[in-house]
């Protein structure tokens, strides 16, 4: 039996009207923002299925943009996000699609700027979210754990090099997920942690050879 928490039942404090379609949208936006970790010139949001159909009445579009701009789920400015100065500094666009191979509440973020990036995720109910894809790589993280994301060249020993540094700090790994494009090509690693990584260890990790991208995505507050 999972060890559930009563706090989960009497939270979150959030802006309505829907935990999956509003709060979930904000949280997906926040995670995508942290994965991109730069200032985009333009963001295209692709809303699928139920997100596309009922998004208007639930403020899903506002939630997604608010998240990308860094607003928290209980920020009352979400309602007027399109009028915020932050929103006027980037270009954004919404596309509404139907694809029943995707989750009912699925969204893609297409970031354009000095770095281009694709991030996809689902809002899986009660405000819980999962990021499923970054560029071509399958990942799986929820914002409930501090998460280390790495894209690297598929060479032997990468996992042990990274996990050794984490283990030296006595930080427990909650889950680890790897994926690769092809042998010896680009690969990805997604590590959810019970503890926190400091600047020093992140610098050491960034110093590992054959790494293309390192992102440390902190767990969401709400």
């Amino acid at each position: 039996m999972p060890q559930t928490s009563f706090i989960d039942i009497i939270t979150p404090i959030m802006v309505g009207p829907s935990s999956s379609h509003t709060a979930g949208a904000v949280r997906l936006g926040l995670l995508a923002r942290n994965v991109y970790d730069a200032r985009p010139h333009k963001v295209t949001f692709r809303l699928y299925n139920s997100y596309a159909q009922t998004g208007f009445g639930h403020g899903t579009d506002k939630g997604l943009l608010a998240g990308v701009l860094g607003l928290a789920v209980d920020d009352v400015r979400i309602k007027h996000v399109f009028d915020l100065p932050e929103a006027k500094q980037i270009a954004y666009e919404f596309e509404y699609l139907e694809d029943f191979n995707r989750h009912p509440n699925a969204v893609d973020f297409i970031f354009e700027g000095d770095l281009n990036m694709f991030v996809a995720g689902d809002s899986v109910g009660a405000g819980e979210v999962v990021i499923r894809k970054i560029n071509d790589f399958t990942v799986k993280f929820t914002g409930k754990f501090n998460t280390l994301l790495l894209v690297y060249r598929d060479v032997p020993g990468m996992i042990s090099r990274v996990t050794k540094l984490i283990q030296e700090r006595n930080i427990n790994i909650a889950s680890l997920h790897c994926d690769r494009y092809a042998k010896g090509e680009e690969a990805s690693m997604c590590i959810c942690l019970d503890g926190e990584l400091d600047e020093k260890i992140l610098k050491l990790i960034e110093g590992i050879e054959n790494l293309y991208l390192v992102r440390y995505v902190k767990k969401l507050e709400h």
Binding site: T11, G16, P17, T22, K62, V76, K79
Partner: peptide, 21 residues
């Protein structure tokens, strides 16, 4: 009603049922 006008509420247990408890 505060919930559906995008006001701040507590999902308890959900947003749709936020007025009861």
């Amino acid at each position: 009603e505060e919930n559906l006008r995008m006001g701040k509420i507590v999902a308890c247990p959900t947003a749709g049922s936020c007025g009861i408890v």
